[in-house]
Design a protein around this nucleic acid. Sequence first.
DNA 1: GCCTTGCGGTTTAATAATGCAACCACAATA
DNA 2: TATTGTGGTTGCATTATTAAACCGCAAGGC
Lengths: 149, 149
Amino acid sequence: MVKRTSLEGNGCPVARSLDAIGDWWSLLIIRDAFVGRRRFGEFQRSLGLAKNILTIRLRALVDRGILTTEPASDGSAYREYVLTPKGRGLFPILVALRQWSEEFDQRPEEIATILVDRETGRPVQKLALCAQDGRLLGPADTTLRPRTG
Amino acid sequence: MVKRTSLEGNGCPVARSLDAIGDWWSLLIIRDAFVGRRRFGEFQRSLGLAKNILTIRLRALVDRGILTTEPASDGSAYREYVLTPKGRGLFPILVALRQWSEEFDQRPEEIATILVDRETGRPVQKLALCAQDGRLLGPADTTLRPRTG
DNA sequence: GCCTTGCGGTTTAATAATGCAACCACAATA
DNA sequence: TATTGTGGTTGCATTATTAAACCGCAAGGC
């Protein structure tokens, strides 16, 4: 990708997020972390990516405060990677990606999993964007405003 | 990237979405499209990416049904790129990315824009994930279930 | 204690993606 | 007519990603 134009200094929050997690593998690693995977080998087998890339990605996610390394959990003295609060904050992004696929994918029959409410076992609703008074908002009902002070 | 492991056949809807829009520029192009940009030159100047890359990205987005080319709009006979319904369906993903940045970014003072309700001019609420009965759901309140038939 | 296996990487070489700059045809403008 | 802008294409240099080999350490069996 050549110098991969960093978007860090960009004022757009979308660009800033993408700068942190917009690469090819990070969101998939995070998705796996939400499903409870924590070990290097688990991620590597699940995603099928090269180990050196996984090393780099995990390090970057730790550096950015999205994952932390914990000393152990099952006794064995290996490191484990777990989501921080900042990492758990990515949940809506994963849900949005999932729901877009569910709604618009060409072959929905190939989709293997459904996100369900743990208590009732029933599918969740679509993510809702609401105004302060509760009105449901679509793309056309919103505007961007420069941040004031 | 060497064969850039396509995720098309993957059963995970998150992976499928990322396969379509998970590259370095697509979501930024789409963000610009939501702000009303439609011409090749507009995207190029706004994003500062190489023209050949923009050509490839726009073509891919059109192929995937996210953008369409329309013949004109201001009279001049140049093509314009506009969002399809499938493309407008990406709105929650952009909002989720934005809100993650707003909540967790290291330097929130650098964020330049706020998403507001067009009617009232007031900031929108956080994206809400709800159960069918309306309960607000967090990551821990959900599970993945295999799709049944 | 010694051997084997698995885990968590690092290193190397090949290949694909990106970026930059130059170029080009056509449309619009002066 | 000349000049500029638009929307690309083409080549080349640079960087990212990959697969595969290698490597040290820990754990477990004997």
